[in-house]
Design a protein around this nucleic acid. Structure first.
Lengths: 145, 145
DNA sequence: AAAGTTGAAACTAAATATGTTACAACTTTA
DNA sequence: TAAAGTTGTAACATATTTAGTTTCAACTTT
């Protein structure tokens, strides 16, 4: 199991938008070239980021722009925007435990808190990282090339 | 995206093995009944738990037993045993970023540490919980019924 | 020897992820 | 205002993964 690559694609896209903004029109076609991901998929991701208020795009005129400051966008915002995890939670509980068995009818209750805590640990870590940090690191590597 | 239900099934199975051990033979068929999961799938999970040194099973004689003390089995051990996540990591990096683009050829390096930190946060939380705690909570709920 | 069980392979079915084709709606510019 | 380029979106295709199913040999107990 892996979290959809739309997440890393989205971070890649946003980094490009910041780095190339002003120098060129950052179209879905350009982003497709940089990410190696199909342009329609890119437009889908951009659509989700737009819905989340992270980018601005408009039909016709090409070119995406950030709708927020870099340090106001966390990896968690992106992760939520592209729907990395199910509404049911990160963990998938087997659906038909037997209510006639004392373990079967209670295991869900006994585990839920632990599973939520684990998911929260992951998400809190993502909340603590902003796109500003990722872009800064990227610029640092580019400048050092 | 969700982590395979084999994880919660495995915890359910191990809880049953602890709670019903001595009272009855905890066969894959019994566990299938309690979890609502196909007996062949149960045997597959038991096989992975056996490979990980968590349970003991033998062909012919039915009945699984724990191979370790409850407080020596963490949720992380189970998560690893049933192969919840890919060897490549929890996050799936898009595979063909463009090396001719300064962002494309560096984004992986710029993100990797952050992704590993997020995965580690999840896994550390799982390492901090033992099966003993889950079983204790389960018993508490059963006794309170 | 019979009955019940595990281990495992091979196949099926359903769900998900990603890519592709096609095209209408829109904007810019010649 | 016509042409060119772009976004948004639907419909379809393909590959992978998840879970279930069928089948049966190997094994243990009685």
């Amino acid at each position: 199991m892996q979290i959809t690559s739309k997440f890393t694609v989205a971070v890649h896209i946003l980094t490009c938008i910041d780095i190339f903004d002003g120098q060129m029109r950052v179209t879905s076609d350009f982003l497709s070239g940089s990410t190696g991901v199909n342009a329609v998929i890119v437009r889908g991701v951009l659509g989700q980021l737009r819905t989340a208020g992270i980018v601005e795009t408009r039909q016709g005129s090409g070119g995406a722009h950030l709708a927020k400051a870099l340090d106001e966008i966390t990896l968690y915002d992106i992760y939520k925007a592209v729907d990395c995890v199910d509404d049911e939670g990160l963990f998938h509980f087997h659906e038909n435990p037997n209510a006639d068995c004392p373990v079967g009818r209670n295991i869900h209750k006994a585990m839920d808190g632990r599973l939520e805590a684990a998911q929260a640990a992951l998400e809190n870590e993502l909340k603590s990282t902003t796109l500003a940090q990722v872009v800064a690191d990227t610029r640092k590597i580019i400048d050092g090339e």
